[in-house]
Design a protein around this nucleic acid. Structure first.
Length: 996
RNA sequence: GCUCAGAUGGUGGAACUGGUAGACACGCAGGACUUAAAAUCCUGUUCCCGUUAAAGGAGUGCGGGUUCGAUUCCCGCUCUGAGUACCA
């Protein structure tokens, strides 16, 4: 047993010299592919194109663990398969190499982030190469390299120079907008813009000075500056995107995040909200992921309504005449009994009457103190304050009090709601709490204990819509409001414009300088604007971003922007760069883009659902609007690979004695604990323990007696023990490598162990996140050293469906390794001499072959890689049983296996006498159904749906003959037991069911 | 709370349009080979009852339904995981 453990991290010692030598084979072919650029993709060929893309990684310092390559292996199998199917395949890889971890490291060590990044990339590359991917490395991109971020900056400039024309429903150039302003003023412009744009005539525009014109244009640009409330993370010294904040803490690092007002670059993604939503119906993505994007975009159809302010009181000199609300249930307007505005609403101060000022101030103070987290945890408590002011209902003139409450969010809609307690549960609770009226408005509504948001029934208490149904009522109310000029149908989106700036160093500099407080683009020929060197990677003493430290970094006309672009900038267009990675004139040539068009298959994690995948679609649509790319959607088909979780192992130690106890023994001990505690007789106990295979010693009972709880029969007790994570790399199939464990700490060497009867120490296990602190990280390098890349590739696929999340468990990898050795043996004799015959194949051999040809084809097309691995095993098992070593079979079999296990396939392919490397572009064997045709079928015969026996019959027989033959069968007669069947169902070639 | 995904042996999983549940692999048990082990090979392995062999019975999270027949379709529930968070 000890020797078994000695082998743990060593390559398999194979008994014969010429057995499957994966190490030599894999190194040889990886070298060959690199030297011969086997997987170089051409931008023009007569073959149809196919673009297989992986989400490129951020090269972290920890390197790859076994979960990372899962998606890469799947996409590589697919890419290799598509090559065999005659496609010109683009399958590139690169690095999303700007990002926070390298910068954090730089702050701690003073090491330049580019140095760290370079080193990490080298590690990634080495690990990726070992797995045998068919990437075209000539097209590698790195987002942090100047010849890449030059084009990220260039796209930023195009966004800056564009505005969104709603009439044309696309982005257009700012020059065109200026033209319009010069000839017609602001009239006739239907744009997505800031809210407070000016109205002016053509002359008015010309009368503006340059400053004023620029300030106005900034309100239209697709990337623009505005003061916005941002998620400020003081510990990281930066602003975070909404999707980087989790429950009020930063996703990376878990530092507190607060709301802060800052001048920020933003991207007008909201201009594309509708197109982003509609585009989802045209792409083949997982439904949950599309749903996430739909929720994120958050379209709601409703109406905006203006409630005129009742100026009879102190409000006579107010500038505004109304409060505007957004509602999705404008039909319930006659049920409005109060208005609620957000505590941050701009009108709060003005609306507060002197008598209510104390209440309102107290409430605002209280709200501000509540952290984001409290506000979320505390959705049940009703709170609010009355401003003292009133508005009137635009349709019936009713006087309506205006309240403030934090259940209304300043950032959504207009920051104000019309409260209809009969139809909305939050309004209902609020009304109950503050004793406000609840007006029923639908005849079938039941509002005794809670709000009833039904749309069924007809309206009551609702003036001119009384008696109508939901649809007519809504239309009637909207028409009326439009007549009055106090409301209109409106679509509202939850999605906000994306913040596009970070107060950090390690990112793309924004190609902008400031003059007179306004931003101007640098000249295009000065791109890239290089990231300057700085002395420390920290904010300046005056609180400016790190770039404020750069000396002499200044545009002749003014100061450069000091913030850098966010992490998603470089990843929002990278798939185009792969098409033409070395172009220094354009981000990619027109020809390359027109040839490759879009990504046919994109594989990556679902964690990018609302970040990368939304921003990428946005930039893609913009690039299409300005005529630079050809497809509306960048990723035609997308697959989420499931997350690989860790599988942790634990060892147990009894608190009293310090002995380590094997898990199964511990379980027995625990199960037996209560019984043992009943007896104080050492002899009885010793017997009981012996029955468990445990050594008994007086005093062990005390282990339970700690924390004991008295019961009526005696004592129910708890055994005191500790569980500790143990490194999964010294555990195999939950059996601990005791020798290694003892060596890991001197204390463990001298400890005592309670083992299983066979001398093993069994660990328990649990599924957790894969992380160093849980000692459950499995490194692909170790597995490759032991079993080879082909085994790793196939095992990762064998683990289960690609899209399913699952814990990593190395148990079972041997089965795949054995399979590859068995496969190798098909081509070799008992002494491992290559031995393939040219005899004609038998029917059975051809059947095995064509079964797998068909199966692999079907499986790959539906991304079911795990089932093909099983099928390969079945095929090899069958051919082994048939003792088949015929070229006619094996040659085709090697091709079908090549996408999964490319190294062994290359080796055997050349041994078969084919030119080296040619398997990558060999033709996938043609499936011939004729070889699968059977003339007999063993019909399962069920009685009332329960399978009892099989009867073999010719497949040419028709239903009536089958029925007769089955009923005549002796076995069937026995089950019938003289009874006459009520009914016999015969499905030809499938089943016979007899109803009795 | 809402939305989505999922639940099958000791374990990972298979069963593609409703038609033999548990393929394939791990683990485990027994055996062969060996001085012994490793490697390799063979046999068995859903559970219960029972056995010389058999023959039964139950069974895909739980409770119903549709059907000749349900892991698969429908209704209700439980649990697990993910996303989202007062969205008017």
């Amino acid at each position: 047993m000890l020797k078994q453990f000695l082998l743990f991290s060593q390559p398999y010692t194979l008994n014969k010299q010429m057995d499957y030598q994966f190490k030599d084979i894999e190194q040889k072919w990886q070298q060959f592919w690199a030297d011969n650029k086997t997987f170089k993709a051409e931008n023009t060929t007569s073959k149809p194109k196919y673009y297989v893309l992986d989400m490129f990684p951020y090269p972290s310092g920890a390197g790859l663990h076994v979960g990372h390559p899962l998606g890469y292996i799947a996409s590589d199998i697919f890419a290799r398969y598509k090559r065999l199917k005659g496609f010109n395949v683009l399958h590139p890889m690169g690095y999303d190499s700007f990002g926070l971890p390298a910068e954090q490291y730089a702050i701690q060590t003073g090491q330049h982030p580019s140095v760290t990044t370079e080193a990490n990339i080298a590690t990634y590359r080495r690990q990726l190469d070992q797995i045998g991917f068919s990437f075209d490395w000539d097209r590698e991109v790195r987002t942090s390299s100047p010849d890449y971020y030059k084009w990220t900056q260039w796209i930023f400039m195009q966004l800056f120079n564009s505005w969104y024309n709603k009439d044309a429903d696309k982005a257009e150039s700012i020059a065109k907008l200026v033209e319009h302003f010069e000839s017609k003023g602001s009239a006739g412009i239907n744009a997505v813009s800031d809210e407070e744009v000016l109205s002016f005539t053509a002359d008015g525009w010309k009368a503006f000075n340059l400053q004023e014109q620029q300030a106005e244009l900034l309100k239209y640009r697709l990337t623009y500056l505005r003061e916005s409330t941002v998620n400020w993370c003081a510990a990281l010294g930066t602003v975070l995107a909404n999707d980087e904040v989790k429950d009020g803490f930063s996703e990376r690092g878990g530092y507190p995040v607060e709301q802060k007002k800052m001048m920020q670059w933003s991207m007008r993604i909201t201009a594309y909200a509708q197109r982003l939503l509609e585009g989802l119906d045209t792409i083949d993505w997982p439904e949950p992921l599309k749903e996430m994007q739909r929720n994120w975009i958050g379209k709601s159809v409703g109406a905006s309504v203006r409630f005129p302010l009742d100026k009879t009181t102190h409000l006579s000199q107010l500038t505004t005449n109304y409060i505007e609300v957004f509602t999705t249930r404008v039909d319930t307007i006659f049920g409005v009994s109060f208005l609620v505005i957000a505590p941050e609403h701009e009108l709060v101060a003005e609306l507060t009457t002197p008598g209510q000022k104390a209440d309102i101030d107290a409430y605002i103070t209280q709200t501000k103190k509540k952290s984001e987290l409290d506000r979320m945890a505390d959705t049940k408590t009703v709170s609010g304050a009355f401003t003292g002011s009133y508005v009137t209902n635009p349709l019936n003139g009713a006087q309506i009090p205006v309240w403030i409450a934090d259940y209304v969010l300043a950032g959504y809609g207009t920051g104000a709601v019309m409260a209809v307690p009969s139809g909305d549960q939050r309004d209902y609770l609020f009304a109950k709490h503050f004793n406000l009226p609840i007006i029923p408005i639908i005849d079938i509504q039941n509002i005794e204990t809670e709000a009833d948001p039904t749309k069924e029934g007809t309206y009551i208490n609702s003036d001119f819509i009384n008696g109508l149904g939901y649809k007519e009522a809504t239309a009637a109310v909207v028409t009326k409001l439009e007549e009055l000029g106090l409301g209109k149908a409106k679509v509202n989106f939850r999605m906000r414009d994306a913040i596009f700036g970070r107060q950090r160093y390690w990112g793309e500099p924004v190609p902008v300088y400031f003059k007179g407080g306004l931003p101007y683009l640098i000249e295009e020929e000065h791109l890239p604007l290089l990231l300057p060197e700085i002395d420390k990677y920290l904010p300046t003493e005056s609180g400016e971003p790190p770039l404020g430290r750069a000396t002499g970094w200044k545009h002749p006309e003014g100061e450069y922007e000091l913030s850098t672009m966010p992490g998603w900038a470089g990843s929002s267009w990278y798939w185009y760069r792969y098409m033409d990675a070395h172009n220094d004139k354009e981000f990619a040539s027109r020809e390359a883009i027109e040839y490759w068009k879009d990504v046919d298959l994109y594989i990556g994690g679902s964690e990018h659902a609302t970040g990368h995948l939304l921003y990428s679609r946005f930039w893609n649509k913009f690039l299409k609007d300005i005529g630079k790319v050809v497809e509306e959607e960048p990723f035609k088909k997308l697959i989420n690979q499931g997350m690989i979780q860790g599988r942790s192992n634990f060892v147990f130690r009894l608190v009293k004695t310090g002995k380590f106890i094997s898990y199964n023994k511990l379980k027995k001990l625990l199960a037996y604990g209560g019984l043992l505690a009943d007896s104080n007789n050492d002899q009885d106990n010793a017997k009981a323990f012996a029955g468990l295979g445990l050594e008994y010693y007086p005093g062990i009972i005390d282990l339970w007696k700690e924390n004991s709880t008295p019961t009526d029969t005696g004592v129910k007790t708890t055994l005191q023990y500790q569980s500790t994570h143990v490194d999964v790399n010294i555990v195999e199939n939950d059996t601990l490598d005791l020798a290694k464990f003892k060596k890991s700490r001197p204390e463990y060497a001298s400890a005592e162990y309670i083992l299983e009867d066979d001398g093993k120490y069994i660990c328990s296990w649990e599924v957790e996140k894969m992380s160093k602190s849980k000692f459950n990280v499995v490194n692909p390098d170790d597995l490759i050293a032991r079993y080879g890349a082909d085994t790793l590739r196939m095992y990762e696929m064998f683990l289960g469906p690609l899209e399913q999340s699952k814990p990593w468990n190395t148990n079972g990898i041997e089965g795949v390794f054995k399979f590859l050795r068995k496969f190798w043996k098909l081509f070799h004799d008992a002494d491992f001499n290559f031995n393939v015959s040219n005899e004609a194949p038998t029917k059975a051999e051809l059947k095995s072959l064509h079964k797998i040809i068909q199966k692999v084809e079907q499986d790959i097309e539906r991304f079911s890689f795990n089932t093909s691995v099983s099928s390969f095993m079945i095929a090899v098992n069958e051919l082994t049983d048939l003792k088949c070593n015929k070229r006619a079979i094996l040659q085709d079999l090697v091709i079908t296996l090549a996408p999964y296990a490319p190294h062994i396939s290359e080796e055997l392919w050349t041994l078969l006498g084919n030119p080296a490397g040619s398997i990558s572009t060999a033709a996938y064997p043609k499936f011939n159904p004729a070889y699968l045709v059977e003339d007999e079928f063993s019909y399962p015969v069920s009685f009332n749906g329960k399978m009892k026996t099989n009867v073999s019959l010719s497949l040419t027989m028709e239903a009536a003959d089958i029925e007769a033959a089955i009923l005549a069968n002796a076995d069937v007669q026995k089950y019938l037991d003289g009874k006459t069947p009520k009914k016999v169902i015969v499905v030809k070639g499938r089943i016979v069911n007899i109803v009795i």
